[in-house]
């Protein structure tokens, strides 16, 4: 960004997901699908072909019965701000046709479907597997296209798509604010579909830079961790877990490495 353009309206939207509360029920996944016009096939059991912008993973501690433990981990796009928070997330800088972009205003990584020509380099770049390719033409069983959301365009075959923190809701909230003579929106006015749907209130969303937003405090929770911090991708999705093995599962550690997942002291 050029000198002089810096302003206090810069936001960094992010998410804090409380894994202690998450029950793995999948409501977030479906809310996301409904909001974002995600197509479906007759067979969706191959998860590597299935488009789920938000996928709930099941983690286990690998111990035998009855010491086994499992934990669910919902994984939206991490909206990495990249090394040094410069916005060069792993996927953005690799896109040859500038179809994916990082906005310094919101910290959201966007995907422009009409610009994407489907080279899938971004998918190779993303270690979280948040990017999905449209292997098929999107076809709805007769009549079902009636529930499509007009705020999100339907993606054609052959392009990559991913979670965008329901950016359309940000736009809608902005429009409302303009009507009311405001230029900024309130925390509650912009919440992604998954956050809204979560029946356990496990997901919190807001501006990570704004001390008034709930996520600001939550990200400093001693239980907080992010996925693959060692790669310096700088994700904007934080997870909370009171279980050490879960926090440990957030990153790769080599043997005998001192694992720093102890709850931090306040």
């Amino acid at each position: 960004m050029k000198e002089g353009q810096h302003d206090q309206h810069i936001k960094k939207y992010g998410m804090v997901i409380d894994l202690d509360k998450c029950t793995g029920c999948g409501a977030c996944m479906v809310a996301c699908m409904q909001e974002n016009n995600i197509p479906f096939q007759k067979d969706e059991t191959d998860k590597m072909l299935s488009i789920t912008w938000l996928r709930v993973f099941k983690l286990d501690n690998g111990k035998p019965y009855p010491d086994t433990d499992i934990c669910y981990l919902p994984r939206p796009c991490m909206h990495c701000s990249g090394i040094g928070e410069h916005g060069h997330s792993p996927c953005v800088s690799v896109c040859p046709a500038t179809a994916t972009d990082y906005s310094m205003e919101t910290g959201i990584v966007s995907q422009i479907y009409t610009r994407c020509f489907g080279c899938r380099y971004c998918m190779a770049a993303c270690p979280y597997h948040v990017r999905h390719f449209n292997w098929w033409d999107p076809v709805w069983p007769s009549g079902m296209e009636r529930s499509l959301n007009p705020n999100v365009s339907v993606r054609m075959r052959g392009v990559v798509e991913k979670c965008n923190f329901c950016f359309q809701r940000y736009q809608i909230a902005k429009e409302k604010a303009f009507t009311e003579g405001r230029t900024e929106i309130e925390e509650h006015e912009y919440q992604p579909a998954c956050v809204e749907a979560c029946p356990a209130n496990a997901i919190t969303f807001g501006d990570l830079l704004n001390p008034k937003h709930k996520v600001y405090k939550l990200k400093q929770d001693p239980r907080a961790f992010r996925l693959l911090e060692k790669l310096h991708t700088n994700p904007k999705v934080y997870y909370l877990s009171s279980r050490e093995w879960v926090r440990e599962a957030g990153d790769n550690y080599i043997e005998n490495e001192k694992v720093d997942v102890e709850p931090k002291k306040h």
């Binding site: 690799v94 040859p96 046709a97 500038t98 179809a99 020509f117 489907g118 080279c119 052959g158 392009v159």
Partner: peptide
């Protein structure tokens, strides 16, 4: 054949992202 939208393949030239290795390759 490999790209999802072959008819838009030329976007790699037209809308080039100069930071991408793939653009350089292309």
């Amino acid at each position: 054949i490999d790209i999802g939208q072959p008819l838009r393949g030329w976007f790699i030239f037209w809308h080039a992202n100069v930071h991408s290795m793939l653009t350089e390759v292309a």
